[in-house]
Each structure stands twice: as C-alpha cells, then as structure tokens.
Design a protein around this nucleic acid. Structure first.
Length: 271
DNA sequence: AGGTTGACCTGGACGC
DNA sequence: TGCGTCCAGGTCAACC
C-alpha cells in the first residue's frame, strides 16, 4: 500500500495526534513474523516512554521516544503492503488483523493493523538513530541524484525501487515519475543522459510533493491516521491504467514486467 | 558485488 | 452463490 507520500501522510497525522503523550500500556498479537524485535522487547521499550515526535524515514515511520532516565529509543513501523497505523478512541472496536496497540496517557490508542502481514515492527535503543537504507528522494540535489545511478546496469525502474539507492519510492511513483520524465522503464540506469537524469530528478520530486499535498494515493485500502483516504490516485497518468489511452497523447498504455513488478508506460511519450 | 527471482500473506476482483 | 485463479502499494533471502 504505502510509498513515501502515504507514509509521510500517516506519520504527520499520527505525530499531530500523539506527540507529547506517554505510552502506558502495550498489547501485541501472537504473530511472530510482524515483530522484527521481540514483542517483549517492544513492549519493554515502549511502556512508560514519552512520544517526542513521529516522522518518516524512507518508507518507515519513526517514533522518537524518551524512556526512563531520559533514555532515547525509537519505535520503527514499516507498513509493508497493507499496514495501517491508526489513532482511535478505545471504545471503537479493534479491526481484524490488529497486531499491536499502544494505550496512551490521554486514553486514546495507537493501533497497528495489517491483514497481509508484510509490515514490520521493531525498536531501536542506543545513541544512533535510524537513518534508513538509502538516499532521501525529496531533498536530494540533482547532482547527487545523477551520481546514484552511475555504472548501474539494472533498469532505471528497478533502480528507483531499490531502497538502498533511494529510499521511499515504490511502484506507483516510479512509474509516474518515469512517465513525467519521458523515460522508458527498461532503460539501463547507468546509460541515461545527463539531461534525462535531470528530468527524472525534477519529475520525481514534483510527483512526490504533489502526492504528499493530496494525502497520498488510495488504491485499495490506504488510509491516514484518521482512516481518511488520499486523492493522488486521481492524478495517476500511467499506474494501473494499462490498455487505456495516454492522457497526453492518447496512445494505448503498455504493461510490462520490470524488476519483477508490473510496470505501465506510454510507448509514445516515453522513448 | 550487482542483479534477478520467488517466497512471504490475505483479500478483492473477475470468470465460469 | 460459489469456487478457482490471478493480482496487489514491499521486502528479503537465495540464487546466478
């Protein structure tokens, strides 16, 4: 479900609602795969801690915590494909596939819900905070962006999806930014011209900024911290539009597989 | 080492 | 209505 704009929307929403609260109680389900750190360690680290801030790093939601004796810690939430992080009043029943619930000092609950269980929860203790695996796409400068792909033989679409190169971009925004930049998804990353890389850099940052502004893309079940859907899906030019006419040139959009992922592009606009 | 593929899950959409 | 098949926003381990 969630790529950078969706994760950012959720993180900002949760931040506005829980910042400064204390976590009084932690409940975890018995689904081991959801927990990258043991449920006991997560509960131990979170219980009694104060939430300083909630933010996004790559596709991960980072909850900065202050524990006993002012010890810093972080709660990391990766939503996977279908994860949701919701803030709700305790009297509202837990949705099915609820895997963790943090009860806060103001009575509300932070709930992690994830039907498909590709999401992951973990905690980080100690001085070094979570940095993420790759470069942040919303702020990277054009020059450094171009450097990231130098000598790479993989397809540019696959490179955009590789989180250790750039973190935060997923299938929707990879296809949408390649369309806006007029680049074929299978082009080798290391063989793009300076000009193409400059266009891709600009296109990616535009697409991400616009999507964040519209609260992300709700393709099936994505919702923000209040359960509200985003609107960027209405702006999609190619994603999920295979066989339909290009909105710019009316050519029929093509569907291929790149890097194991369904990819849609315009054979006329993307040369 | 870099690049590719399949496995991990559930549920919704679609065809018969 | 019901059953089977296919597909999905993401990673990661195992392979070449």
């Amino acid at each position: 479900m969630p790529e950078l704009p969706e994760v950012e929307t959720v993180a900002n929403g949760v931040n506005a609602r829980v910042r400064g609260r204390r976590i009084e109680q932690v409940w975890t389900s018995g689904k081991p795969q959801t927990f990258k750190s043991s449920p006991a360690k997560i509960a131990g680290t979170l219980t009694g801690a104060r939430i300083e801030r909630v933010r996004r790093v790559g596709k991960t939601i980072v909850m900065d915590l202050r524990g006993a004796e002012d010890r810093p810690a972080q709660f990391l939430v990766h939503l996977g494909m279908t994860g949701r992080l919701l803030v709700a009043q305790p009297e509202i029943p837990w949705p099915t596939h609820t895997h963790a619930v943090l009860s806060l000092s103001d009575g509300r609950e932070v709930r992690f819900v994830d039907p498909r269980r590709f999401g992951r929860l973990s905690v980080l203790t100690g001085p070094s905070g979570y940095q993420g695996p790759g470069t942040e796409p919303t702020t990277v400068l054009a020059e450094e962006f171009a450097q990231l792909f130098k000598g790479r033989r993989l397809a540019i679409k696959a490179a955009l999806l590789n989180q250790s190169i750039l973190h935060g971009v997923g299938n929707i925004y990879a296809d949408e930014s390649l369309f806006r930049a007029g680049i074929r998804p299978r082009r080798q990353a290391g063989r793009l011209s300076r000009e193409q890389l400059a266009r891709l850099h600009a296109a990616l940052q535009e697409v991400l900024a616009e999507a964040i502004r519209l609260g992300g893309s709700s393709v099936s079940d994505y919702v923000d911290a209040d359960g509200v859907r985003g609107f960027f899906q209405l702006q999609h030019k190619v994603y999920s539009r295979a066989g339909q006419p290009c909105r710019e040139c009316a050519a029929v959009l093509k569907k291929i597989t790149v890097g194991g992922r369904t990819t849609v592009y315009c054979p006329r606009c993307q040369q």
